[in-house]
Amino acid sequence: MARFRVGTWIVLYLLALLMQVALLPQIFPNGYAPNAVLSVTVLIALYETPRRGMWAGLVGGLMQDLWAGRLIGLNALTFALLGYTIALVQQRIVRDPIFVPGLLAALSQVVVTPFQWLLLYVFGYHFPWLVFSRPLPVWILFSMLFTPALGGILGFRTRIHRRTRYRSVSPPW
């Protein structure tokens, strides 16, 4: 399995964070800017082992935490768990380059939002759940569309495509 190097992870996360702080707030209203780091974590974890998926999530989350300068560990923990889970799930499912990344990213968003709300609540940020989850449909839609699109831009292929790339086709007899 072709894996990304840690340097590539960092570059991808840097680009995602740049987009998240400078570009997306220009498009989405205040508080509605979606999380591009989540999409990158899902994409990386789709092609990694659970352990490496977890490390990737940890790196991405930590970068976001350091960038935000608040509650360091909130995103690191969330995305490490997410990376691990996605990498674990991807070994057991049939994948395609569009539908599965989109679906997994949307599901991740559905799980990550209440998890982070709970973490924030524990650490003293008491946001009303109804207000906190209001942008969720926007984030789900964004993840569903953005993740496969990013995968396409980065040249992600299905496992079968990658395995048969250089294999010569010989008759079975």
Binding site: V21, A22, P25, A68, L120
Partner: peptide
């Protein structure tokens, strides 16, 4: 203003 906070629930 050149950037916003990457976390939606913190406003910096």
């Amino acid at each position: 203003i050149i950037a916003r906070n990457p976390d939606s629930w913190f406003n910096t």
